[in-house]
Design a protein around this nucleic acid. Structure first.
Lengths: 214, 214
DNA sequence: TACAGTTTTGACCATGCGGTCAAATTTTCG
DNA sequence: CGAAAATTTGACCGCATGGTCAAAACTGTA
């Protein structure tokens, strides 16, 4: 009997253990994406994975731990994906406008290629609550993710490249539109990601640029 | 024993019956807003309302019917609210830009003054599924609501007032930002609704206007 | 082979769920 | 008043949930 559950370190994991955990996580993503948060019972996840329910409890301390591992996993992969894109596109001193564009393109590209993962994570973040009914991931989503955008906007305004607007409101708008893309992709997998991305980039390009009416 | 459940007509409702239904709906909104969709059990709603669980079943055919009544109710009140605003602000032939502005102001004003209601409705629409796991309100939300915006955008483009963009993508963006305001209000009730509205109006004003870079 | 450690199962538990119903209560009205 | 109708309760049912655990099966290795 091994009674220790890792939360972050990938150190002392058996090959079997790591493989099982990954397998369970993959199937959990599938079930959440297909049946929603409420429909993702341990029974259904186990059945979908082809294992017994008890085995999930063996590898994860409880349902909460499983969902938290799910969120951490996708979040991390998403972050890496976007960062790789940035490394390829951005020179050390790119303009804020270029950075905004890269931000949008990176995020939307990840969503387009990982719709199920992002859909699942969003579902969990939105619904997972503790015993007292408080959203567990409520603030994480919000505050951590707005920071990057706000920085870009403030830099752009300082450089005179962006018009004057409330960076916080603009950041909220960007995240809402980006996250919304998830449902477009999940709803109809044939959406034209490139076209949507181009439209969104143009939208925020115009939204941030000083206007000179004719 | 009266065994008929009304779905639309308000005709043959006892005073008591109408009052109870309204009371139950109000408390359901509260519970959903506070504890989320999953936390809104009939037991909790009954307790919150101060009645027995059986009474809910007496006035509503089942939980599904209750939630659908909830959605219909808020949806209708919201629609009336926005339409009243339009009647006051819009002349018969207002410009598309004015209409877009009125659309945003009307929607955001309703959300600001009815955050709990809108929060509850969004929660239900997002999570309520039938036995097979399909979202019950999935398309309702989407298609019905985009129509108005798309019309405005197409009119504006035809009149040369708006730049060329995909009306559908812009409509999605508008709805996402508008709906997102709900969570801002619910998260911190002290948000400055007027300021947020002004920012959003400016955002989409710029986003829809042809750009003439300096 | 035998043994220790690990992984896996399947039966079981308490809990809360949505829903039903006979009985009790309140209202309506002749 | 008193009977009929409408309203309300509280106990109860079957079911699915998350979780536990002893036993079984599967490793590897001495």
């Amino acid at each position: 009997m091994r009674s220790n559950f890792r939360t972050s370190g990938q150190s002392e994991l058996t090959v079997t253990e790591a493989a099982r955990r990954a397998q369970i996580l993959r199937h959990t993503i599938d079930v959440v994406a297909e049946r929603g948060y409420a429909g993702a019972s341990l029974n259904r996840i186990a059945e979908h994975t082809g294992i017994s329910k008890g085995l999930i409890s063996y590898h994860f301390k409880g349902k909460a731990a499983l969902l938290e591992a799910l969120v951490t996993d996708v979040f991390q992969r998403g972050g890496e994906f976007v960062l790789e894109g940035w490394a390829a596109e951005l020179s050390p001193e790119s303009s804020p406008r270029t950075m905004l564009r890269a931000y949008l393109e990176g995020n939307l590209a990840f969503i387009a290629s990982h719709a199920r993962d992002v859909g699942a994570i969003v579902e969990v973040i939105r619904n997972h609550r503790d015993a007292e009914g408080r959203l567990v991931f409520g603030n994480v989503w919000t505050e951590d993710l707005y920071g990057d955008l706000i920085q870009i906007f403030e830099a752009g305004q300082a450089a005179g490249e962006f018009r004057r607007f409330d960076p916080r409101v603009m950041a909220i708008a960007v995240r809402r539109v980006v996250d919304g893309f998830t449902f477009q992709v999940m709803g109809s997998p044939d959406v034209d990601a490139a076209a949507f991305t181009a439209e969104v980039v143009a939208l925020f390009d115009h939204a941030t640029t000083p206007m000179e009416r004719s």
